[in-house]
Design a protein around this nucleic acid. Structure first.
Lengths: 148, 148
DNA sequence: ATCTGTAATGCGACTCAGTCGCAACACAAT
DNA sequence: ATTGTGTTGCGACTGAGTCGCATTACAGAT
C-alpha cells in the first residue's frame, strides 16, 4: 500500500476545518486512526482502534464520521471482493485512484496505479457524457505467489 | 442493459447440467428469474419473483443458488454503488465485462463496454503477474440528464 | 419402474453490519 | 461565561446473509 511518507499527520482534520466542519474528540480519534492506518480497516476495526485514543467513542459515531468523510470525498469505500464477510473497508483518498487486486487464495491486497485507468475514466466521461465522482475498480484472482 | 436477444431460455440450466450439477424445482425457478430479468435484481427481488413460479422457494435457497452460480462463474455480483442499501445485485455473466455507471441523483444504471477496459485488464495481468478471475468496475457520478 | 445414496431444501434461529430517534452533551462564536 | 446548534452515546431496531439440522427429491444403477 503506497502511502506517501510526506503526508502530514492531522491533514484530514485540517481539511474538515477548511470546510468549516466542527471538530470533536471522537472525530479526532477516528481521523487519526484512518490517517495512521497501514492497511485497509473496516468500521469495527476503526472503532476498536479509536477507542484506544478515546474510550467513549461509539459505533454509531464511527459510521456517522465515515459517512461525513465519504460525502466530503476524503475517503473511499472498498469491498475488497468481500473476502472476509460483507463489510466495507476504508482508505484515505489521495490524488490518483488506484486499482485493488484481491488474491482469492491468500487474501493479499495489491494496489496498482495505471495511466490506462485514467484514460478509461476520461473516455467514459466523454463517450457517455457522464460526470464521474467516484470510480472503483476491484479485481479478484490469483497473485503471483498463488497462481498455479 | 444490452442483453443479447439471441439468448436461449434455459441456457443457465444447460450450463449447470454440462457441469454435472443437479437440477431441482427451486433452482429452475431461480435460474429462470435471473435469465428473464430486464434489470438488476437483488436477492430479495429474486426470491419474490421465484416464488411466483414455485411458491415453496426459501430465502436460503436463493442465497445458496446465487453462491453456486458465482462459484461457477455464471453470474456477477454488483454493488451499484450501494444507491439503495447494503445489498447486492446480480446479473448473468456473458462474454465481455462491462462497466456500471450509477447516477447519484436519479439512480439510473448505465452499462458500457470498452476496449480500453480490456486492455487495462491485460496490462494488469502482465505487469502484476496476477491471474484475473473477476473484475468489477463501478462508477458513481452524474448522468447526462442530471449533470448541471 | 423401483430403489438408493447423496445433494439440495425448508425451516428457524442466529450473526453481523449498519441505522435511527432521542435526550444529553460539547464545541466555537459571541 | 453564555448560548445555539451540531454532535454524541445509548439502545433498540432493521435487513442482509448464514448455519445446523431433519426432511425431501433428484438422477444413476438395478
Amino acid at each position: 500500500m503506497p502511502l506517501p511518507q510526506t503526508e502530514i499527520p492531522g491533514r484530514l482534520q485540517m481539511q474538515l476545518a477548511e470546510r468549516g466542519i466542527r471538530m470533536t474528540g471522537p472525530r479526532r480519534a477516528i481521523l487519526s486512526v484512518i490517517e495512521t492506518a497501514t492497511k485497509h480497516l473496516d468500521a469495527t476495526q476503526i472503532l476498536r482502534k479509536a477507542r484506544t485514543l478515546d474510550a467513549s467513542v461509539d459505533r454509531s459515531t464511527v459510521y456517522r464520521t465515515l459517512d461525513l468523510l465519504k460525502r466530503q470525498g476524503l475517503i473511499d469505500e472498498l469491498d475488497l471482493m468481500h473476502l472476509n464477510g460483507e463489510g466495507h473497508y476504508y482508505e484515505r483518498k489521495l490524488g490518483r485512484d488506484h486499482i485493488h487486486m484481491a488474491c482469492l487464495r491468500c487474501g493479499k491486497i495489491t494496489e496498482f496505479v495505471s495511466k490506462t485507468f485514467e484514460s478509461l475514466k476520461k473516455q467514459l466521461e466523454r463517450d457517455c457524457n457522464f460526470h464521474i465522482v467516484v470510480a472503483r475498480l476491484e479485481v479478484g484472482g490469483y497473485c503471483s505467489a498463488c497462481r498455479h
